[in-house]
Design a binder for these strands. Sequence first.
DNA 1: CTAATTTTTGACCGAACGGTAATGAAAAGG
DNA 2: CCTTTTCATTACCGTTCGGTCAAAAATTAG
Lengths: 195, 195
Amino acid sequence: MAGRPREFDEDKVLEAAMGAFWDNGYESTSLADLVAATGLHKGSLYQAFGDKHSLFIRSLKRYLSDVRAQKTAMLAAAESPLSGVRGLFHGFIDMADAEEDPSKGCLAVKAMTEMAPHDPDVQKVMEEHMAIMQRSIQSQLEKAQAAGELGLEKSPEMVAGLLLVFMNGLATWANAGASAAEAHDLLEGQLNALL
Amino acid sequence: MAGRPREFDEDKVLEAAMGAFWDNGYESTSLADLVAATGLHKGSLYQAFGDKHSLFIRSLKRYLSDVRAQKTAMLAAAESPLSGVRGLFHGFIDMADAEEDPSKGCLAVKAMTEMAPHDPDVQKVMEEHMAIMQRSIQSQLEKAQAAGELGLEKSPEMVAGLLLVFMNGLATWANAGASAAEAHDLLEGQLNALL
DNA sequence: CTAATTTTTGACCGAACGGTAATGAAAAGG
DNA sequence: CCTTTTCATTACCGTTCGGTCAAAAATTAG
């Protein structure tokens, strides 16, 4: 009944594919690049993951859920609700800066700009991710209000939205040459203006 | 000495090419797309503009100088320095929303995310553009301070940077489905927080 | 041991890619 | 009018693209 067992770890392959897409975007990543990155042969990739687009969607989803898991953990470990939010955003910069090539930016931002306009699947995935992130930050800000860390006149929903939009802008900006230090400075300015 | 005259308007062709790149990004725009958009034949395109990359750079530069010219005019016509800044940013949203397909976003943001990381030419062009925009907005904010419209404790340089970064984020966000109305709301929140 | 099932592998496909070179047409200088 | 120069046009180039398919290898169920 059961056939030949797989010789690869599906998750490892997905991570490798994610890295390739992250480096070069969707269109610029060729099947040959994917083959080189994953170590699998073309046929195996297709048999296991379907076509290039499906593989991208799975890679993107993996990226996004990784990010969310990391951010959730960060919030849970924070000293206070507000410091959690601040750390969360500064963590985005550190995350990108820890990559071997920091200027490659953020896969999610790449997906939104390059693909979402003409790819409903990507658009839907990104919409959901952004909504989840927004709710998560909003509820953290509400905790901060309850703890008296944040003025009650501020709208957590609006502030969460502004911070997320700003973060997208920072990721874009980083691609055009901004350093991590500049990014931290700008972010600090934004946080101080909003919180 | 002089040979056969051109049958096309170089600027019109550039604008058509710009539109094609704007719709689909760099990699996804094929030579065939450019031929279709411009009406020229492949050979003529190469003879007149060089290769695809050169044509893109020229299209991008045209886009950016168009934007700057429009924004400069907008600032000059503003009732007050501060209302000029507000109008400038809301104008970005209106500009994108006036396109036949608003979700296609901003060519400059596309260039930054898709190309700047691995294309020094694009990176340089975008760095210069952002620096010019920042200086322009910064000086407008300094005028606002001089006119007493803006608190003297705010740093015009920082505020200008924050607004530009935020705008990039908004352009990205728009690709993932945000409407013009939502964008205006968020922008208003950001302006109110900073000005 | 055999049959059934799944994965791996590499050869192969047509189409589209960016780019070039040769030819033909149109204008200006002499 | 004829040469020169430039542009327009077309046919063509090798390469790479995403994707397929059939055969070989590896495993389990009977």
